[in-house]
Nucleic acid binder design. Structure first.
Lengths: 151, 151
DNA sequence: CCTTGTTAGTTACAAAATCAACTGTTAACA
DNA sequence: TGTTAACAGTTGATTTTGTAACTAACAAGG
C-alpha cells in the first residue's frame, strides 16, 4: 500500500495521545476490572477518595473533569458494593460527603501499589529526565484550553 | 482539603495520558462533529482512506487498532452519508475495498488542514526538540506491550 | 469433492456514555 | 416573606460501544 498523501496520522498529537493512553491503560484496566469488577470511572473515584479522604461527588467531578452523571453512577455502584459510604452534610443538605469503607481503603491501597509498579514499568525505557519532561508536557496538554498561558 | 496520602494521581501516566488525550481532542472533535456530523471512529476511517487511498475495513482496523465492529459501523455510516464507496474484490469476494468519494476527499482535505493547524497550536509552548521527543515517547507508549523491546 | 478451519465483515443483545430534564435544597433580593 | 435563580445530585431517553454469535467466502488436507 503506497502512500498517497503526506499527512502522517501517527504524528497527529490527539491521535497519538489517544493511542498511547489506550495502550498504556490496558493492563491496569485488566487488574481493577478482574480483581474488583470496577470500571474506569470507578477506580478514579476510588483513588480520589483514597488520596483526599473525603470529597463530594461534585468535587470529584471537578477535579477529574468527569461529567457529574458519570460520577453519580460510579458512586452508586461503589456504594452498592460497599466500597464507600455517603453522609449528608447537616449544614447544607444538598451536599453529600463520600468516604471509603475499610473495604474501599483496602482496594485502594492494593490498586495504588499496582499503579506504582505499573507506572514504573511504563517509564522503564526512558531516562529520569525524559520521564519528568514527558509528565510535564502532558500536564500542560491536559490543562483546559481556557487556561492556556494563564497560571 | 488536605492530602492524606502521598500517591499523586496527576503523575500516574495512564491517567495523565488520558487527561491529555481528552483535553487535546476536544476542540478538534467539535470541528469534525459540527462540520461533518462525524464520530471519532469516523474521522479516523476517513483519514486512513484519505492518506492511503484504498483499504479494506480489516486493514483500517489493524492499522488503527480499532475493533472491527466499530470500523464496520463507522464505514456503514460514512457510506450512507456518501463519504465513501465499497467495492467487492472479484478475486476474493470476502474483501471489500473502501474508497473516498469526492465528497469524502473534500472533507478529508478540509479536516487535514484543520488537524495540521491544530497540532501546531498544541505544540506551540514546546521547543522543536521537546515536541519531537514527546512524539517519540508517545509512539513508544502506544506500541502494543507485546512488542516491548522488540523491533 | 467434502469436511474442517480460517478470514472478512455484519448483526443482536447487553453494557455504558451522553444529554436533557428532573427533585430537592440553599441563596439573593425585591 | 415570596419569588426567582443557582446548585448538588439523580433519573430517563437516546446513542454509542462491547462481546459474542452469526453469515458468507476461501483454503487445505484427506
Amino acid at each position: 500500500m503506497h502512500e498517497k498523501d503526506d499527512f502522517d496520522l501517527q504524528e497527529f498529537l490527539p491521535y497519538l495521545l489517544n493511542q498511547a493512553a489506550e495502550e498504556s491503560s490496558l493492563a491496569f484496566q485488566q487488574i481493577y476490572k478482574h480483581r474488583y469488577g470496577m470500571l474506569r470511572t470507578e477506580w478514579r473515584v476510588l483513588f480520589h477518595l483514597g488520596i483526599y479522604g473525603e470529597l463530594t461527588a461534585g468535587e470529584i467531578a471537578a477535579r477529574a473533569r468527569i461529567h457529574k452523571t458519570k460520577v453519580s453512577r460510579a458512586v452508586a455502584r461503589l456504594e452498592s458494593r460497599r466500597f464507600l459510604t455517603r453522609s449528608r452534610d447537616a449544614a447544607d443538605r444538598r451536599r453529600e460527603a463520600l468516604r471509603l469503607t475499610p473495604k474501599g481503603e483496602s482496594a485502594y491501597r492494593d490498586l495504588r501499589e499496582v499503579a506504582r509498579d505499573y507506572d514504573a514499568m511504563l517509564v522503564e525505557g526512558f531516562s529520569e529526565h525524559e520521564a519528568e519532561l514527558l509528565r510535564q508536557m502532558l500536564r500542560r496538554l491536559a490543562r483546559p484550553a481556557a487556561d492556556r498561558g494563564a497560571a
